[in-house]
Design a binder for these strands. Structure first.
Lengths: 242, 242
DNA sequence: AAGTGGTCTAGACCACGAG
DNA sequence: TCGTGGTCTAGACCACTTG
């Protein structure tokens, strides 16, 4: 007994259930942090068995779209401070410890996008972007110089939201309903320039990490482009390959 | 009806099944590439239901310990050229394309480990290491200068295996039965020195990526420590955060 | 046609959290 | 005590691969 209109091709039931639930979350029917109906309720509502709902929720749990708590229920993921931090902020010291970063916003401007931004963010003709420049510090030392570019269409009037939170992703989710679950990073080594010298307090020519990050929302659209220039004197970029 | 001796605490049955299967693979009872018994055979042999075996195999599939092929069966993962390459070799050009790297071995030596190597590789007292130095090229241009350090106990007489394959992990698995499934990387930016200048053909002071990788075998032991110095003039380190 | 993994169901019991 | 997710089972049918 299929519970959904056929999407395009024959899909396993649990995939259809998953996409149905995902759609509701993306559309804001269930907000981040809210409790979903129980597996049995969803199963009854969609006309499938509880095991099928479970399999859909299992995959969504693996993708961190939802969080399950035994005895309580299943919740839409929330970008808490820790989550956003440990998931996307990869800098830590030799012990693997990352002190909570603080941020100092240098400027917030609306402007025309560059051709690279248009293609990477898949911007429409004439769409403007907001450009945030800030310095992030660990233990009171400036470590990262960050250029953040987002579409004004996705995030209108972001300049008015100041002071901006340390983790922008909680702002995106809380104020704009955009959940960042995936990102691609692209890392090269560059020499520090005049700008780096004054803002990161390193000599010109110091080797820095330059990280380009393209972040995707829950529905797979690229929504943020971010360039980070990192001093790696005291911290390193750490990641696990599996 | 439990199928395994209780490990330490009460564990779900499927976890016990998973650990049992994992042990057999680690011990070489089933070699990489070989076909496992069917789910029903395993279930009968272990005295659990087929669904429980399935759940164990599902997790092992997610961890890439095994590969399932519908209609054929479940196989122990093999480090093929592509897998090892695309899984752990993160350098690619702006289009995300990575030409097959070639390697030139500069030296292979046995020596005493440094204190850092002892602690990172968890070496026993008096255990020697093999140190491989090589240059890896993409499209005939030298791009990575690599120092690879492994324990002589894990990989005896590795010097005799020359010419070393491009992807050492296939050698580890094929000749020594050690499967690398997980690694931690630690990235900083450094300036090129004399050595980099001659081997990577870059000017002294050029910013390079320095990647420290600690690779773990299927049973969770650290077995290889590798330092890569990468020129990022034409290629960048690319990774997906999820 | 036979055997494999892939999906789906239905029902049972357990462990946890909250009232 | 009740409702939740977590585990386990047993059996059915489907889709794919091979002979």
């Amino acid at each position: 007994m299929p519970a959904d209109q056929a999407p395009t091709r024959f899909q396993p039931l649990y995939v259809q259930v998953k996409e149905h639930l995902l759609t509701r979350i993306v559309e804001g029917y269930w907000l981040p942090g809210s409790l979903l109906p129980s597996e049995n309720q969803l199963a009854a509502e969609l006309g499938v068995s509880q095991g099928t709902v479970r399999k859909a929720l299992d995959e969504m749990t693996a993708e961190k779209v939802v969080v399950r708590r035994q005895g309580r229920g299943t919740f839409v993921s929330e970008h808490t401070q820790e989550q956003a931090l440990f998931h996307f902020f990869r800098l830590a010291d030799t012990e693997g410890i990352s002190p909570a970063p603080s941020s100092q916003v240098i400027s917030v401007k609306e402007r025309e996008p560059t051709p690279g931004e248009v293609s990477k963010l898949q911007l429409k003709e004439g769409e403007a972007v907001t450009h945030i420049l800030r310095v992030r510090s660990l233990a009171d030392h400036p470590v990262v110089l960050e250029d953040v570019v987002v579409s004004c269409a996705d995030f209108p009037d972001i300049a008015a939201k100041q002071p901006l939170p340390n983790t922008l992703y909680t702002l995106y989710q809380g104020q704009y309903g955009v959940s960042i679950l995936k990102a691609k990073e692209n890392i090269v080594a560059v020499a520090a320039d005049e700008n780096d010298k004054s803002l990161l307090q390193v000599p010109i020519g110091t080797a820095l990490l330059r990280i380009e990050r393209l972040a995707f929302s829950i529905d797979g659209r690229p929504v943020e482009l971010r360039y980070s220039r990192c001093s790696t004197n005291h911290y390193s970029y750490q990641i696990e390959l599996t």
